[in-house]
């Protein structure tokens, strides 16, 4: 399995904030990654670093085995779609698609126009006159039709309605199946895309909180509730990421082994239990790390 992106101790500091703090991770070829975290967690900065649109303060960064900065071999295999993408004032939708055709070696022109049709984009309309949703559609089409071996989407659906978002997920998966590539999806709508993800990277406060196979995370955490002493017994020696009390009753989200043994143990203790979705797990982990900034979550 070859590695597409590798960072070691990557750091990006601005005057008074650290946006990316000592992040070490590997992104493997032809997998779909979810880059999750709250707004301002450092996701966008991390993606800007990976595409050499910003420069790291310190640490190591390799994309396709090389430093991406001013590196044509790396950059022409990379496509980064971001919400803040700017376009020349005089450009129409068609000009953007034609320029993208020129910039991205893997571009499929026919497919791009068929996508534009499906997303109902007026090709002759100026970019300045597009609605927010249409602007998002342009980015999505460029991202899919570029077929770049490393394709990164930063919250690409802002302004899109549910129908168009679903169309995006469908077309992305379809094209990915036919033309496998590495895809990084940054989002906070975890529930919507979680089924598409093979791997999850969670960052909070610029730090890496989680770097795990998505399926391994599903069902790994369980919520148990019952009398406090029993919940405590169950949670002993495990990480609790969330805890609520109601009178003498306690409900806690506990990270387990994910093999089903946990639920049985909870049942034996007379606790009621339910598994936790990926979205809930991510929310709890993010909150837990805020409450406890020193501790890196370990699962």
């Amino acid at each position: 399995m070859s590695v597409v992106v590798e960072t070691k101790g990557l750091r990006k500091a601005y005057k008074d904030t650290v946006a990316v703090d000592n992040v070490s991770l590997k992104i493997a070829e032809n997998k779909i990654y979810g880059l999750l975290g709250r707004n301002g967690a450092g996701k966008t900065t991390l993606m800007h670093l990976m595409t050499a649109q910003q420069l790291p303060t310190s640490g190591e960064l390799k994309v396709f085995g090389e430093n991406p900065y001013e590196n044509e071999r790396v950059l022409k295999r990379t496509c980064f779609i971001k919400e803040s993408q700017k376009y020349p004032d005089t450009f129409r939708v068609k000009d953007v698609l034609e320029t993208a055709a020129d910039f991205f070696p893997g571009w499929d022109r026919e497919y791009a126009y068929s996508l534009a049709d499906e997303f109902r984009l007026p090709l002759r309309r100026g970019m300045k006159k597009l609605s927010r949703g249409m602007l998002a559609s342009v980015g999505i089409i460029v991202g899919i039709a570029s077929r770049a071996p490393l394709t990164i989407f930063d919250e690409p659906y802002l302004g899109l309605d549910a129908v168009a978002r679903s169309l995006f997920y469908d077309r992305l998966m379809e094209d990915y199946t036919e033309h496998p590539r590495t895809i990084v999806l940054s989002t906070h709508l975890i529930d919507e895309i979680s089924k598409l993800l093979e791997h999850v990277i969670l960052i909070e406060g610029g730090k890496l909180l989680l770097d795990e196979d998505a399926d391994a995370l599903r069902g790994r955490a369980i919520r148990v509730s019952g009398p406090a002493f029993k919940v405590n017994e169950f949670a002993e020696g495990r990480k609790t990421v969330h805890r609520q009390t109601l009178g003498g009753l306690v409900s806690a989200v506990v990270i387990g082994d994910g093999d089903g043994g946990d639920r049985e143990r909870a049942q034996r203790l007379g606790l009621s239990s339910e598994t936790v979705t990926l979205q809930q797990l991510v929310v709890h982990m993010t909150n837990a790390s805020n409450a406890n900034p020193e501790r890196k979550a370990e699962i």
Partner: peptide
């Protein structure tokens, strides 16, 4: 695998697993 992936809108690698 791809038919499963498309039908359930899931990642093909997961379906293959």
């Amino acid at each position: 695998t791809n038919q499963f992936a498309a039908f359930y809108q899931i990642n093909p690698a997961t379906a293959a697993k």
